[in-house]
Amino acid sequence: MSENFQEALTLMAVGMLTVFVILLLVVVLGNAIIMFVNRFFPETESKLSNTSPPGQVDRKHLAVIAAAVSVVTGGRGRVLKVEKEG
């Protein structure tokens, strides 16, 4: 019994330490990924801003329409042209 209890105490120490270390890794890796993404692949507002000439569909709306078509067609459909009437 006491041998089992000692094993359980070791398990508790190793288990809790491992869980903390892994979640510390989650935090460190998460922060590293965020820093990497922010530095090399930031998605700035200007990328999606309304820069299209008047009379045409703005790029934000175009992106939404393209995403919707892609979802509905399972990635096989593409939006070739969107025009405003009138």
């Binding site: 089992n4 094993e7 359980a8 989650v26 935090v27 998460g30 922060n31």
Partner: peptide, 26 residues
């Protein structure tokens, strides 16, 4: 979780029940 990474640590603390009951069960 990515927006609040430091809160992830509390997911570790909440595993203490597993090992406490392991002791008790033995």
């Amino acid at each position: 979780m990515l927006r609040n990474l430091r809160l992830a640590f509390f997911g570790a603390a909440a595993q203490i029940g597993i090992f406490t009951v392991l002791l008790g069960a033995i």
